[in-house]
């Protein structure tokens, strides 16, 4: 099952990240996971939040460039070799990960990772077939 990631375009300017967290805080939107990718001039902040549609609307209303993307939240055993196991499955099946990042909190005794694939259908199918746990959206969006 897929979850919605919110990506926001940001210039590398002082205080820009806080403006985003201000906007989300003012709407009582909780950030579950976050990653920032950057070049020398600009960055992309990617967010998993409890209310993606509301977050999308409010960020857009604040004249930011926002994009919704479908990603998977993948559970990995929180022990040595946990991530390696999942990556091994993907590699064996030639599934390419565009990028991945970790959740702020742990869902359970498992580590939770956000993974972005270019071929989402295939990634989802292969992970399921190999009994890798994909976390359901309502579990991510709870509260």
């Amino acid at each position: 099952m897929r979850i919605i990631q919110i990506a926001v375009f940001l210039e590398n300017k002082k205080g820009r990240l806080k403006e985003i967290t201000d906007i989300l805080a003012s709407q009582s939107i909780d950030i579950r996971a976050l990653s920032i990718a950057e070049t020398k001039d600009f960055g992309v902040i990617r967010l998993i939040v409890n209310h993606p549609d509301r977050a999308y609307a409010v960020l857009k209303a604040n004249e930011l460039t926002v994009r919704k993307t479908e990603v998977l939240a993948v559970e990995v055993e929180d022990q040595p070799g946990g991530l390696n196991h999942v990556l091994g499955i993907l590699e064996k099946n030639s599934v390419n990960i565009e990028y991945m990042y970790a959740f702020v909190e742990k869902a359970s005794d498992k580590a939770l990772l956000v993974m972005r694939f270019d071929d989402l259908d295939r990634a989802e199918k292969i992970l399921s077939e190999n009994k890798v746990s994909i976390v359901k959206a309502d579990k991510i969006y709870k509260n």
């Binding site: 990631q5 990506a7 375009f9 990718a37 950057e38 070049t39 600009f42 992309v44 990617r46 460039t65 926002v66 994009r67 993307t69 565009e98 990028y99 972005r116």
Partner: peptide
């Protein structure tokens, strides 16, 4: 200016 039509969550696409 980056608008939604050309924005991507992937850095490599933006580059």
């Amino acid at each position: 200016e980056v608008n939604e039509a050309i924005f991507s969550d992937e850095i490599k696409a933006l580059e």
